[in-house]
Computed example of a mutant assay.
Amino acid sequence: MKIRRWQFAAIILTIIWLFVRGVPLDPQVIFGELLLGFILAIFVTWGFRRMYEGQTNLSHGARVLPYALVYVGTFLRELIVGNVDVAYRVLWPSMPIEPVTVYMPLRVERPTAITTIANSISLTPGTLSMDYDDEANALYVHTINGRDPASIVAPIRRWEDLAIVIFGEEADPSDPAPDIQIGGDIDGE
């Protein structure tokens, strides 16, 4: 089943409205907030419908929902691990901080997939997406713990594997990931 993207965006915004409002578990209140959120979302998305041209395939969305949930779970795990690591480094200043930049070529090519991965990196404490190389389809990732680059790259590659499925990329999660470059190796430095 296909619906217009702006209509799908209205549905998503309605669901977000419920979470933002912090609705109590009372059916009447939930229904009222759902109705209010949907009316507001319809007006907003209709007003910006040119940004949401085309249609969305709902069956694809239902098919990739489990992968999206795993992506969110993986992200939340890394968020917690990153917070604990950074807090530990703040509370024990003797803990080494060895910043390094990782040049990470990607297999995903869609802008939404790249943006999702880049935002996930930047939202995780201790890492930051510094830049995107459009020609090489690669991210520059800064990390405060350069001792073990594999531990930085591993969750990003898991996110990328999931994003390949979620965003319907041409690549396959089983395709080999391109090699990364660390610190001084970037751009032949």
Rank of each mutant, 00 (worst) to 15 (best):
M1H: 12
M1V: 14
I3R: 04
R5F: 04
R5E: 01
R5Q: 09
W6R: 04
W6F: 13
F8Y: 14
I11V: 14
L13E: 04
L18R: 03
L18P: 00
F19L: 11
V20P: 00
V20L: 14
R21Y: 08
R21D: 08
G22S: 07
G22V: 11
G22D: 05
G22H: 03
D26M: 13
D26L: 13
P27K: 07
P27C: 08
P27G: 03
V29I: 15
F31A: 15
G32A: 12
G32T: 13
E33A: 12
L34Y: 09
L34S: 13
L36Q: 06
F38A: 12
F38I: 06
F38R: 02
T45Y: 05
T45K: 07
G47V: 14
G47K: 13
F48D: 00
R49G: 01
R49I: 07
R50S: 13
Y52P: 00
Y52A: 12
Y52N: 03
E53V: 15
Q55G: 07
Q55V: 15
T56C: 07
N57C: 09
S59A: 15
G61S: 08
L65V: 02
V70A: 08
Y71G: 03
T74M: 10
T74V: 12
R77Q: 05
E78F: 09
I80L: 13
V81D: 03
N83Q: 06
V84A: 03
V84L: 10
V84P: 00
D85K: 12
A87Y: 10
L91I: 14
P93D: 08
P93I: 13
P96R: 15
P96Q: 12
P99H: 04
T101P: 00
M104L: 15
P105V: 06
L106T: 03
R107I: 00
R110A: 14
R110P: 01
R110M: 11
P111N: 14
T112N: 08
A113Y: 06
A113K: 02
T115L: 11
I117K: 00
N119V: 15
N119E: 13
S120M: 05
S120A: 15
I121N: 03
I121S: 03
L123W: 11
T124P: 02
P125G: 11
G126M: 05
T127N: 05
L128N: 01
M130N: 08
M130S: 11
D133R: 07
E135N: 07
E135C: 02
N137S: 10
A138Q: 00
A138G: 01
A138W: 01
Y140A: 10
Y140M: 12
T143I: 08
I144A: 04
I144S: 05
G146A: 06
D148H: 12
A150F: 05
A150I: 12
A150Q: 12
S151M: 07
I152E: 05
V153M: 03
V153Q: 01
V153W: 01
P155L: 04
P155W: 10
P155R: 07
I156H: 03
R157M: 08
R158Q: 09
E160L: 11
L162I: 05
L162G: 01
A163V: 01
V165H: 07
I166V: 06
E170C: 04
P173R: 08
P176I: 06
A177S: 08
I180H: 01
I180L: 07
I182M: 06
G183Q: 09
D185M: 15
I186N: 01
D187H: 14
G188C: 07
